[in-house]
């Protein structure tokens, strides 16, 4: 039951993009099409699950004073391995995502989960956390990618090489190019965040309560800043 709870929290309650607001750099950079969003989501999820497993395994061996460099080395190793494997076995996908894969190293979702969860919890729960956060991240990216691609390019691309691309005919000459450029990322993300909060407040109101954002997800909760205290 805890396994399920840890997994499911990443989808909505602690969604890394919409609730934790982590990993904004890849979120804004890659979500120009659904295809890129999915690829980035899967690559980051793979690294997240692997690094969660290893860090949970080593959590009692790593002295807390050098934990951050240790986490970064472990994460960077997995990212490099993913990069090489993808380049060798999924060359076309690598051509599309090549730019973003090294960015996974500095994706704070992965370091954030290592610090906040995997370094304090057993392996099974860390796997659950990794899967849940990974799916939540992929889902968030895809929703954002869908909005931006439909509005900005008038198409939906699942996998271009396999021909899984649909043009939305009546949108073809009404597209807002802005949406697939950098500012569009901020606009779409802001609107989606507002929309999510609105839904949450509606749900809270239906239950007869006032909506308060979950306090334990606040920045103050993170231990990285409490170095040396």
């Amino acid at each position: 039951m805890t396994f399920y709870n840890e997994m499911i929290k990443g989808l909505w309650k602690e969604n890394p993009i919409f609730r934790l607001v982590l990993g904004m750099c890849p979120t804004l950079a890659v979500t120009t099409s659904v295809e890129n969003s999915l690829g980035m989501g899967f690559a980051a999820s793979f690294v997240l699950i692997c690094s969660n497993i290893v860090i949970a395994l080593l959590r009692n061996l790593i002295p807390s004073k050098v934990r951050i460099p240790c986490f970064i080395v472990i994460i960077a190793t997995f990212v490099t391995i993913v990069d090489m494997l993808m380049n060798a076995f999924a060359h076309e996908l690598h051509n599309n995502l090549g730019l973003f894969i090294p960015l996974i190293v500095v994706n704070c979702i992965i370091l954030g989960r290592a610090e906040a969860f995997a370094s304090k919890n057993p392996v099974m729960l860390s796997i659950a956390d990794g899967i849940g956060m990974g799916i939540g991240f992929t889902l968030g990216l895809t929703v954002l990618g869908l909005c931006r691609e439909i509005l900005g390019a008038g198409s939906i691309t699942l996998f271009q090489q396999a021909g899984l691309k649909w043009e939305i005919g009546w949108l073809a000459d009404k597209t807002m190019i802005l949406m697939i450029l950098a500012p569009g990322g901020f606009i779409a993300l802001g609107c989606l965040l507002g929309f999510m909060n609105h839904i949450q407040s509606l749900i809270a109101r239906a239950k007869g309560k006032a909506f308060t954002p979950p306090q334990h997800l606040d920045c103050r909760h993170c231990t990285i800043c409490k170095w040396g205290e």
């Binding site: 120009t32 051509n95 599309n96 090549g98 730019l99 691609e149 697939i180 450029l181």
Partner: peptide
């Protein structure tokens, strides 16, 4: 690989 803006 090229790095031109997707969609443009």
């Amino acid at each position: 690989p090229h790095k031109e803006t997707p969609g443009l």
